[in-house]
Computed example of a mutant assay.
Amino acid sequence: MSSIPSELKYTESHEWVKDNGDGTVTVGITDHAQDALGDLVFVELPEIGKQVAVKDACAVVESVKAASDIYSPLSGEVVGANDALDGAPETINEDAYGDGWIFQLKLSDPSQLDELMDAGGYEQLLADEG
């Protein structure tokens, strides 16, 4: 079973969200998602300053198997992107919840955080997907 950090929030499309405590969040894909994709070979990051809404496709990860959209879990403005992934997309495979983060958002509606799953909810989602 993939590790599911309890301090993070999760989406049904397998993104994780870390509340940075300053009106911004850090977003990445879960360990389960990177494992399902396989070895990542390319990451297309969102543009800084881009406005995104919940469930907007805003980044892409490509593996040897497939390309997969990364959806914004929340509405806001992209204020950071993990440029280190440009030369090392495999960082997501190696450290999905740490150095493999993908982008950061300044939230337009922080209350949306309450609508995301906690670790227990995400664990149940994975069990239901079976």
Rank of each mutant, 00 (worst) to 15 (best):
M117T: 10
V79Q: 00
D118G: 10
A66M: 15
S108N: 13
L74W: 05
G80T: 03
L85M: 09
N93L: 04
S72V: 01
S108C: 06
S75A: 14
A67Q: 10
G100D: 06
E94V: 01
A81F: 03
V78L: 01
D109E: 10
L113F: 06
G80K: 07
E77Q: 08
W101A: 01
G76I: 02
K65F: 08
D114Y: 02
S72F: 00
Q112D: 14
D95V: 08
K106A: 15
S72C: 03
W101L: 01
G100A: 01
Y97M: 03
N82R: 04
I70T: 02
D86E: 15
A88Q: 15
S72P: 04
Y97L: 07
D99G: 12
L105H: 13
W101C: 03
D109N: 15
G87Y: 08
S111Y: 05
W101E: 02
P110H: 14
I92E: 03
F103N: 11
T91M: 06
W101I: 03
L107R: 07
S68K: 05
Q112K: 08
D69C: 06
T91W: 04
S75G: 13
A67G: 14
G98A: 04
I102Y: 01
S111L: 07
W101V: 04
S68M: 11
L116W: 08
D83Y: 01
L107H: 08
A81T: 15
A96Q: 05
V79Y: 02
S72I: 01
G87E: 15
S72Y: 00
Y97R: 05
D86R: 12
L116I: 13
G100T: 06
D86N: 15
